[in-house]
């Protein structure tokens, strides 16, 4: 009987540790891009464009290299005289995060929580 209790206890601890380990393994951590390249930039542009339902989007080459967030705004359309067509913007910009989970770089929309796994892009925990 005593042995059974010990076994159950060991099993419980083992499961708990296992669970913790699994949880840590699946946890998404803030990340930054380590080796930005033409290919990673194209991949990032395609991923974010896909997340916002656009065909293309312009992202700078150093995006996500200094910090894990990126703001996306509507392009600045201008009238013939150079003035912004909409110079009084009420619409909130969209925010994206770069995270790393299970060794994979993932770009994530902060509002919708939709995400895309980046295959080519290399990143590390921030």
């Amino acid at each position: 009987m005593k042995i059974n209790f010990i076994l159950i206890g060991v099993l419980f601890i083992a499961c708990a540790v296992c669970g913790c380990s699994s949880q840590a393994k699946n946890r998404a951590l803030s990340a930054v891009i380590t080796e930005p390249s033409e290919a990673s930039n194209i991949e990032l542009q395609d991923a974010i464009a896909s997340l916002v339902g656009q065909k293309q989007i312009l992202i700078a080459k150093d995006a996500f290299t200094q910090n894990n967030s990126l703001t996306i705004e509507r392009m600045a359309h201008r009238a013939q005289n150079g003035q912004l067509i909409n110079g009084r913007v009420i619409e909130k910009p969209q925010l994206f995060y770069l995270v790393i989970r299970d060794g994979q770089c993932i770009v994530k929309n902060s509002e919708s929580n939709e995400e895309k796994i980046l295959q080519v892009t290399k990143c590390r925990v921030q």
């Binding site: 989007i57 992202i59 995006a63 990126l70 996306i72 705004e73 509507r74 009238a79």
Partner: peptide, 19 residues
């Protein structure tokens, strides 16, 4: 300030400040 443009063009986005 009376304008119109294609919705597809209006919806284009970019990284804040990028061009």
């Amino acid at each position: 300030f009376h304008f119109s443009m294609s919705t597809q063009e209006w919806n284009l986005l970019n990284q804040s400040g990028a061009s």
